[in-house]
Design a protein around this nucleic acid. Structure first.
Length: 595
RNA sequence: UGUCCUAUGGUGUAAUGGUAGCACAACUGACUCUGGAUCAGCCAGUCUAGGUUCGAGUCCUGGUAGGACAACCA
């Protein structure tokens, strides 16, 4: 193929720009294929498979986080793109860590992200089949019961650079192994006294091949199979076979499993069952956060956050409560790409994806977070005007609303300075600014308390500027948001900063843990914030939860508080006791100037 | 002193032997009733040493750096 014969992307676009206005804007259709897509297209075109079936296999031992969201988008996205399907399979082979609480939450999160699975499975559904196959392997001399203790097994496994030693039980007869394995299943032996191992090679350079454990004895109640089993299969024995049973064509997982792949293939080959194949991609990392279930669980259990859905958590439910939209997370997952090299994504890419979506759909409202009173001395005492305001300048269909205006208002304390620096466009003595959708006002004087804090700003307004335009064409540099004092609704507003103060919180110095990297100021709760009254129309969780199916999550309404950021109602809010979360700020070039 | 994976601007990600491109971030400007949005511009990259080739980010060899593997976790 001669590259010179092709026009560049730019030229192509400009040639067709007139016809392309309504073109599909899905980014995935425009970019180059990632390596998984290449594999799938190859398999589809050379007849390795005629359709694809992927799977998302969470262990129900915790809540899903943004890293899982990437995996979900890859697995479901690939199937969707190539006309295939995706199964949801709960990898529930370790009863001591798993619980149905997590099963329900996982279902909700996947649905919320916008995906539906073809069918739902559990590794525990396959316990009988897995047991049968273990017996097959024993009969073929490929598995044996080992009586060594945990310590002996560890000792004899050798190290990365030295080979292991064969177990003294490695050459038991088939009959004895079968008998012992059957009695393990029957519950004759205590936990830890015996395991079933694959007989491969104790000297293999791949540690996974040093007679990996297939079954352990665990007298534990399983959240689905109850007390039926007291032996449970290990991940390496269960996973590939589960894929095979479901006839998964492309089993996609993260990089740390690449060393497991030869073993995954070994079990499938020895058993001669459906040849699923495993492919690995680099897991998602984001700076200023942690992404391990163990650490997230610790944050919850030790009370460093207020639950799995704390808006500062990188969990899917945390992002949802924070006000992230599913679309923004899907777009984020698309942007981070799929490759095999380790990566740390900048948090700003997440915020960009959110702003990009919310800018298009969020209704604009006015709210004052840190209020100070402003009195318009020449405005009639009792007068109230209902001023029209645009709901969303990005979408004319969203129409207008009316906002009450009167003599006494609240404005943001930061929007007034008695001695302003250069380039400060907001209110200061003698300075004229616009009150958005209302009038031009000029500051005359201020009242202060004993400590010198401004308690009230006195202004005069120009009646000719109603609606925010001056008929004489004069202009102002600053436009402020405001709320009528008489009509304002009180609210609590929760502001969030990054949960960790350091870019790579996992990296703690000697004697410290990731907890020492927590940002002590990650939560800032404001009281006495002032909302424009129309915000009380927002739907609360309490009003809606009863009409929600069990597997569907509640989605708050998203607003932009003008000049402040994107906000949504928290699930704690009830009518009359309003609580809003800040999802993210607006880009703020003034704040940047002052850094 | 092992096996495997990986290496492209600050961060991600493309280029499939033939013009190193895109996004985010940063920066500059225009416009603006959100210091928002939008638009325009700009900075910045192939880990290293050899080899193959008319031509190497791409293929080969060595080195360097990072990661994974020694749970009866997944």
């Amino acid at each position: 193929m001669n590259k010179y014969s092709f026009p560049s992307k730019k030229e192509e676009n400009s040639n067709h720009s007139i016809d392309m206005k309504e073109e599909n804007t899905e980014p995935s259709n425009e970019r180059q294929l990632n390596f998984l897509e290449e594999i799938i297209e190859r398999d589809l075109s050379n007849g390795t498979c005629t359709s694809i079936l992927t799977r998302f296999p969470p262990e129900p031992n915790g809540y899903l986080h943004i890293g899982h969201a990437k995996s979900i988008c890859i697995n479901f996205g690939l199937a969707k793109k190539y006309g295939g399907k995706t199964n949801l399979r709960f990898d529930d082979t370790n009863p001591v860590k798993e619980d149905t609480e997590y099963v329900d939450a996982i279902r909700q999160d996947i649905h919320w992200l916008g995906f539906d699975w073809a069918s739902e499975h559990y590794a525990s559904d396959y316990f009988d089949q897995l047991y049968e196959w273990a017996c097959v392997l024993i009969r073929r001399g490929l598995a044996y019961v080992d009586d060594q203790t945990l310590e002996e097994i560890r000792e004899n496994r050798g190290t990365i650079t030295t080979p292991g030693k064969d177990s003294p039980w490695r050459n038991r007869s088939t009959e004895e192994n079968l008998d012992l394995f059957q009695r393990m299943k029957a519950g004759e032996f205590p936990d830890g006294s015996k395991v079933l191992r694959a007989k491969i090679d104790m000297a293999s350079p791949n540690m996974m091949f040093r007679d990996p454990i297939m079954y352990r004895i665990l007298h534990a109640r399983h959240h689905r199979t109850g007390d039926k089993w007291c032996i449970y299969p290990m991940y390496d024995y269960a996973h590939g076979e589960s894929d095979s049973i479901e006839q998964i064509t492309h089993s996609i997982c993260t990089l740390e499993f690449d060393i497991h792949r030869p073993l995954y293939d070994w079990f499938i080959q020895q058993l001669g069952i459906f040849p699923s194949h495993q492919y690995e991609f680099a897991r998602l990392n984001i700076n200023y956060t942690v992404m391990s279930k163990r650490k997230l669980l610790q944050l919850v259990q030790e009370g460093h956050v207020n639950g799995w859905d704390d808006p500062r958590m990188p969990t899917i439910c945390g992002f949802r409560r924070r006000g992230y939209t599913a679309e923004s997370i899907r777009n984020f997952a698309e942007r981070v790409g799929v490759a095999k090299r380790d990566n740390i994504i900048d948090y700003s890419l997440l915020e960009f994806s959110l702003r990009e979506h919310l800018n298009k759909v969020a209704q604009r409202r006015m709210a004052v977070l840190n209020p100070v009173k402003l009195v318009i001395d020449n405005y009639p005492e009792e007068k109230v005007e209902m001023l029209p305001a645009v709901n969303n300048p990005e979408n004319a269909d969203d129409g207008m609303r009316e906002v009450p205006f009167c003599r006494e208002l609240y404005i943001e304390r930061e929007d007034f300075m008695e001695n302003p620096p250069k380039k400060y466009f907001r209110l200061s003595p003698g300075q004229e600014v616009r009150l958005r959708y209302a009038y031009f006002v000029t500051c005359n004087n201020v009242e202060k308390d004993a400590e010198g804090n401004v308690t009230c700003i006195h202004c005069t307004y120009d009646p000719a500027t109603r609606g925010g335009d001056a008929p004489d064409g004069r202009r102002v540099k600053g436009t402020l948001h405001w709320v009528s004092a008489r009509h304002a609704v009180d609210a609590e507003v929760r502001l969030f900063d990054r949960l960790f103060a350091t870019e790579a919180p996992d990296e703690a110095p000697e004697g410290k843990t990731f907890l020492d990297n927590l940002n002590p100021n990650s939560l800032n709760v404001l009281h006495g914030c002032k909302l424009e009254p129309s915000l009380t129309l927002a739907r609360t969780y309490g009003e809606e939860k009863d009409s929600l199916p069990a597997d569907r999550a509640w989605e708050p309404e998203h607003f932009q508080f003008e000049r402040l950021g994107y906000f949504c109602l928290d699930k704690d809010a009830v009518s009359g006791k309003w609580v809003f979360n800040r999802s993210c700020t607006l880009k703020d070039s003034w704040a940047k100037l002052n850094k």
